[in-house]
Design a protein around this nucleic acid. Structure first.
Length: 394
DNA sequence: TCCACTCGCACCTTTGAAATGG
DNA sequence: ACCATTTCAAAGGTGCGAGTGG
């Protein structure tokens, strides 16, 4: 394994959780904190942090779905996303190792229902399931690897089974989410806690989790673009109506052999001063999965956070979210990371960060959701309160 | 009664081991 | 013996509609 000698941020982080660490990360690409830039990664950072740039590869496809109101099927046993998240990275240090992770963040604090061909709010969101992060199977890998070509999170699966032990990302049906990507400079999944990280998101990737498609337009789009769906639909015999239910025979069991690398990020949260011994806390194992680490968010806690940066229009973005902007907030502590989900009572339907899938009418004007958005201040705070590092791996 | 959810179907795509050729 | 390419069977993924249950 090759270490990039000038990876000062990583070095600092791996030894002691220095206050500089997160300053470093934040400053790296945030124009809002130019003053700290000098002090942050000053120590011989020949590959200055903060030039990291993430581009959504299949943005057009996402746009197509987003304009209709993306829906993602979630099942008990896990379902892949479609469209899947495919991104391209640039600006990494070629020889430094990175772990790339992805998680799902609630768009708002509401539950929805499909009524009369459109989505309506159906009440407050249900308590959030354990937050899990999916780690890209290639992780950790050097920056050169990540920048060589685009990579996707094709194998990530979504489930509504809160007791899932396969490490799938757990969501609630009829709730809205958007994927969030984390680029963490770390030599192993066990050290992501210490590494500088940057977070990215793309508004057009927001979706409504469903157990069955509600909007026929989405079904059609999926069938048009997804070869599996196409195959099923265009298949010769549609004998669904002929099925004899009582004679159902159990299908042959198939063993999933996926090389999965999902981290349910829980205990890999940035640790507080109490854990500054620089030891990676062994995550508590849950369920039967040896590497499934989950975090139960503690809604009683909250975290101050800064507004998110403005996103770019071209479906790439540079550091979308960074640790809190308070003058000295070195890292997310456990206290600060087991925060409440962004589902505050006071938050009205208007207070959403990423826009929900626009109703057809709204979708037509001005392509406002075709680019990156300013994150509303209130939302940004809520947004970053969502646990960043809860860790599950399989 | 309504509606979200589960389940199994049968097809196509993907994967990877085995076979073949250079 | 080694490597590259091809073949092929099994595994995996899919939306649908009936059934279930709250």
């Amino acid at each position: 394994m090759q270490h990039f000698p000038e990876a000062s941020c990583t070095t600092a982080a791996s030894s002691v959780l220095s206050p500089v660490l997160f300053q470093c990360v934040r400053v790296a690409s945030s124009d809002k904190h130019p003053a700290s830039a000098a002090q942050s990664c000053a120590a011989g950072d020949s590959y200055p942090q903060g030039r990291v740039r993430m581009t959504l590869e299949n943005a057009d496809l996402w746009k197509s779905f987003h304009s209709v109101g993306t829906e993602m099927i979630i099942t008990k046993h896990g379902r892949r996303m479609f469209p899947h998240c495919s991104v391209r990275l640039s600006g990494l240090q070629p020889f430094a190792n990175y772990v790339i992770m992805m998680d799902m963040v609630p768009v708002d604090g509401f539950k929805y229902k499909w009524k009369k061909e459109q989505w309506e709010v159906a009440g407050k969101a249900e308590p959030q399931p354990p937050c899990r992060l999916y780690m890209h199977p290639d992780s950790p890998a050097p920056g050169s690897h990540w920048m060589k070509q685009s990579f996707s999170f094709l194998k990530m699966k979504l489930t509504n089974n809160t007791l899932d032990q396969h490490g799938h990302v757990i969501l609630h049906s009829m709730h809205r989410y958007f994927p969030r990507f984390h680029v963490i400079q770390a030599d192993s999944p066990y050290t992501v806690r210490w590494g500088p990280f940057q977070t990215f998101s793309f508004p057009e990737t927001s979706f409504t989790a469903v157990t069955a498609y509600q909007n026929p337009k989405i079904t059609k789009l999926k069938i048009d673009h997804n070869p599996f769906a196409k195959g099923f639909r265009e298949g010769g015999t549609h004998s669904h109506s002929k099925r004899c239910r009582p004679n159902r025979s159990p299908p042959a069991k198939r063993v999933t052999m996926d090389v999965k690398c999902c981290i349910s990020l829980s205990d890999l949260q940035r640790t507080p001063s109490t854990s500054q011994s620089a030891q990676v806390q062994k995550p508590s194992l849950k369920g039967g999965h040896p590497q499934a680490w989950t975090l139960e968010p503690d809604p009683s806690e909250s975290l101050h956070a800064e507004p998110l940066e403005l996103h770019e229009y071209d479906y790439s973005c540079e550091e979308q979210m960074v640790p809190a902007s308070v003058p000295y907030q070195p890292y997310r502590s456990v206290e600060n990371s087991r925060f409440a989900f962004p589902l505050g009572d006071a938050e009205g339907p208007h207070a959403v960060g990423h826009p929900p899938p626009p109703p057809p009418a709204a979708a037509e004007h001005g392509g406002q959701h075709h680019g990156f958005h300013h994150h509303h201040q209130a939302r940004a705070a809520d947004w970053s309160q969502y646990p960043l590092f809860s860790y599950s791996s399989w």
